[in-house]
Amino acid sequence: MKYAIYGVLLSVLLTACAQDPSKTGDQSADGKAGQNGAQTSGMSVNGVDGSLLNGKLSAPPKNVTGILAQRVIYFDYDSSAIRSEFRAVLDAHATFVKANPKAKLHLQGHTDERGSREYNVALGQRRADSVNKAMGLLGIDANRMEAVSFGEEKPAVEGHDEAAWSKNRRVEIRYDGE
């Protein structure tokens, strides 16, 4: 039964993709999306909303394309402000969570390697809290989200220069069960 619903949703989703290609463009800074090969064709936020309403997913399907495939929000040095280019990503995930009552967000904050490990846990937490707050404003209930920090402990990119650091100052949007 579960699988049947999943299949139907997936096909709707794929249809939505086919009907509504390339609306979101890419976020070339988003390494995760790149790895999933999800940058070439997207779907509009509305498309996601329509196809996943009353969904029973706990997370977007692994092969989802478009903006919902984007899971990483990047930050400026020593900042927890969400850059405007990431608003659409948060919108897409908020829409998904609202449409899928089982879905719960695990927002993981990260920093670059510079400075004290514990201070960086607190900095990463502030970034995760910032995304948490933004999701709250988009209508997600606080008990469906947890904002946590990994500090500098889990760099996305190894390296000791700004190119690496800018990829490591981030919040990763994960879903419970992932």
Partner: peptide, 9 residues
Amino acid sequence: YVSFEEKKP
């Protein structure tokens, strides 16, 4: 000490 084994500190 702090452990991240539960995907959080």
